[in-house]
């Protein structure tokens, strides 16, 4: 398609009417904002957009327990392998004799996610066979140094809480 350029007449060639028109538009915006109308800025710490977050929002990864209070994670370390920036470090342990969930065999002894490295990609959530790791809606993760930015197991469970439903395969096993 050929776009033909409009020939400008001499008034348009002076550009002054167009410039004044532009100035009028910006003046309108200036006046409106000065009166406090139509300003779209969100005053962040006081106003947050938590309520507007979509259901699929990918915030910080967390670990969850099921309705029996059992850690869902079985330390398969798939998430540790898939994590692109290698933010996850897992040390597995055997579930001791006498524990009602002994049949699960493994649980994480240590589960660290380095939030200074995490890129919120959600691959850990996607890969987990036990649906034990979820990306929640927390986005404001701060710390004063690098070690503070590492989320340990306790913190991850505290943020994750309890997740109902979905996986019942361990109940069916004896």
């Amino acid at each position: 398609m050929i776009v033909h350029r409009k020939k400008l007449n001499w008034i348009e060639k002076l550009y002054l009417p167009a410039i004044l028109g532009g100035l009028a538009i910006t003046w309108k915006h200036f006046k409106k904002s000065l009166l406090g109308k139509g300003v779209i800025t969100m005053q962040y710490p006081e106003e947050k957009w938590d309520a507007h977050l979509p259901a699929w929002y990918r915030g910080a990864p967390t670990l969850v327990k099921d309705e029996h209070g059992r850690e869902r994670c079985v330390s398969c370390q798939l998430c540790e392998f898939i994590c692109p920036p290698r933010a996850i470090t897992i040390e597995p342990m055997e579930i001791p004799e006498g524990d009602p969930w002994r049949k699960v065999e493994k649980a994480p002894q240590k589960f660290d996610i380095d939030m200074a490295r995490c890129i919120y990609c959600g691959l850990c959530e996607e890969v987990c066979p036990e649906q034990a790791i979820y990306l929640r809606k927390d986005y404001s993760i701060t710390g004063l140094n690098r070690t503070e930015m590492i989320h340990h197991k306790e913190k991850l469970y505290e943020m994750g809480g309890v997740m109902h439903g979905l996986v019942f395969k361990w109940n069916e096993k004896k």
Binding site: H29, S33, V39
Partner: peptide, 10 residues
Amino acid sequence: RVSALIQDRL
């Protein structure tokens, strides 16, 4: 400030 107000910001 003025640039912000012209662009509907604060």
